[in-house]
Design a protein around this nucleic acid. Sequence first.
DNA 1: TTCAGCAATTGACAATTGTCAAAAAATACG
DNA 2: CGTATTTTTTGACAATTGTCAATTGCTGAA
Lengths: 180, 180
Amino acid sequence: MRSIYPLSDAGLELLKPFIAKKHISKGDFILRKDETCRHIYFVNKGFARIFYFKNGKEITEWFTAEKNFCFSITSYFEEKPSHLIIECLEDSEVIYLSKEGLDKLCKTQIEISNFFSKMISGALILSQKRMDSIQFETARQRYEQLIKNQPYILQKVPLQYVASFLGITSETLSRIRTQI
Amino acid sequence: MRSIYPLSDAGLELLKPFIAKKHISKGDFILRKDETCRHIYFVNKGFARIFYFKNGKEITEWFTAEKNFCFSITSYFEEKPSHLIIECLEDSEVIYLSKEGLDKLCKTQIEISNFFSKMISGALILSQKRMDSIQFETARQRYEQLIKNQPYILQKVPLQYVASFLGITSETLSRIRTQI
DNA sequence: TTCAGCAATTGACAATTGTCAAAAAATACG
DNA sequence: CGTATTTTTTGACAATTGTCAATTGCTGAA
């Protein structure tokens, strides 16, 4: 976990009471629909995808690779039921860091507060970059970027997940692929 | 400034050395192209827009209304020259909060660190909502949402700014407007 | 007040992507 | 294996939005 954002031994000790390690089997959920997201999830081992239903169809919003974290931003901060679902696509080991504990620690422990800020800023930068990409690149450009930056995704997940992640239909993705 | 995120008197005193109030005339810039964004900008009075050039055309990314803050996310966090430009569309009073000062305070002052987290999480939630809107709503739906949620924008800025903010051309916006 | 310059609209057409249906390919499982 | 199921591809067509060019409308400075 510390590989992502630096944290002293003392800081880690502070977090420990609020951390739980769980094994999630392939196909099982880290976060279910309408469950409120009360943790930040570090995918220590394995692979997850974040998706939701739109007009009866699954839309993949994000993938979380090993050694990355995920959570439902709006559910977590607004403490409302999540429309996002987080599913493990492989047998995974996930570290749950509780919001309750984190909030409590942030009130008194400056190292934890800064650790949290770092995580959030990282998420903000990612969110911003994804927004730029969706708004100003064509479907083909986004697919090419994906091949370049996260080729492992294409090896791990069905193309329909990739398609909705890119914001296009399976059919369009298929046509893009034949033309490259 | 405190109207947005709570801050004690002591907290405000801590920030004061790193705050500067500036008057920016209509048409002048808060952040210029290729300048590194070293502040968070609170628009205390006035109105600003954030835009950049794409293929020689201005693309409006965001508007900042009175009592809101703005900054270039990637330039600020990655300390790189900004491709975003922040321009005042009215005579404005802007409070500059320096990153250097904020970073320094965050190391030792937990209230400031939490204040900063709150700002960033707010920005993250906004960014997320905008992403959803761009990816899954049609141009017309986004325009209708804009009328509903931020009607003042339509009164303040030329339609071409609104169009690029919605991610469409002026022509398309014009056609949407005639059909409502 | 007038006119220059910018902003907004309109028309014709093109490009991109979506939708629906069907076929082909890949995969899972008894 | 072989079959059932799911995934991917393909085709025909429609919808949305963009591009380019021309026109109209608006605004501000001389």
